[in-house]
Computed example of a mutant assay.
Amino acid sequence: MTAIDPLVSLVYCSSATHPFSEQELAELLAVSRARNSAHDITGMLLYRGGEFVQILEGARSDVEALMEKIGRDPRHRDVRVLLEEPLHERRFEEWTMGYQSLVAAEQGMKSGYRDSFDDLRMGDHDMIGRAIMELTLWFRVRESAV
């Protein structure tokens, strides 16, 4: 990355225009991973109940170009950038698109379990930052256990 095209992290959420099956998610991931690898974009994708949260890392121009595509993608609606910040180093360097499907909360789950992305749409920058850091840590711990 250069000073002209710095490394950034961008987090967005969106709603699917229809519920994605496991097969549709697998196809989306295969295409996304190939495209991201070609553009040196890394990150993670979370999906639950028709809602996406994604973290993208890469050169600002590449991440912005990808966001333009996502914004035009007919499978998404209500695309919102939640957070964009400069990065000194990648948090998802080893993943062109790490993925986790979140399940609905079950009775008896520990308190603090995130069973919704609704709070991310509220617009409180500090709360969004904390939630993204929690999701990032949760994702990395689950991936390292696989």
Rank of each mutant, 00 (worst) to 15 (best):
G129D: 14
Q100N: 11
M109H: 06
S37F: 09
R75P: 07
T96M: 10
G58L: 03
A145R: 11
M133A: 13
A16M: 08
L82G: 03
T17I: 01
R77H: 07
G129F: 12
E64C: 13
D124T: 02
T136M: 00
V8R: 08
L83K: 07
H76T: 11
M97L: 06
A104C: 02
A59M: 02
E134H: 00
P74K: 05
R140K: 07
M1R: 09
E143L: 05
W95Y: 14
R114P: 00
D5M: 11
S101P: 04
K69N: 09
Q100K: 10
E106R: 15
R72M: 10
L66R: 06
E68Q: 15
R130N: 13
G112Y: 03
K110Q: 12
D78S: 15
S14C: 11
M109I: 00
H76V: 05
L102N: 03
R91H: 08
H18Y: 15
T2V: 08
F139D: 00
P74H: 10
E143H: 08
M44C: 11
D62G: 06
A145E: 06
D126H: 09
K110N: 04
E93R: 15
L25W: 07
F20E: 06
S21D: 03
P6Q: 08
T136Q: 04
C13T: 15
M1L: 07
G98Q: 10
L10K: 08
H39E: 09
T42M: 10
R60Q: 11
H125S: 11
T136A: 13
R48I: 09
E51R: 04
A3F: 14
G108V: 08
K69D: 04
H18R: 12
R35A: 13
K69L: 02
V31R: 12
E143M: 14
A65G: 09
V79S: 02
S116Q: 10
R72I: 00
S32A: 15
E24I: 05
R33S: 11
K110V: 09
L82Y: 09
E68Y: 15
V8Y: 03
V63D: 00
M1Q: 07
D78V: 06
A3L: 11
L83Y: 14
A105L: 15
L56V: 03
L137Y: 06
E84K: 13
D73N: 07
K69Q: 02
V146E: 05
M127S: 05
F117Q: 08
R91M: 12
A104R: 14
G71H: 11
I41F: 06
L29D: 01
A38D: 13
L120M: 05
S15I: 12
A105F: 04
D62S: 11
Y99V: 03
G71C: 05
A59W: 01
R75C: 05
V146I: 15
I128Y: 09
L135D: 00
Y113D: 10
D126L: 04
I70F: 01
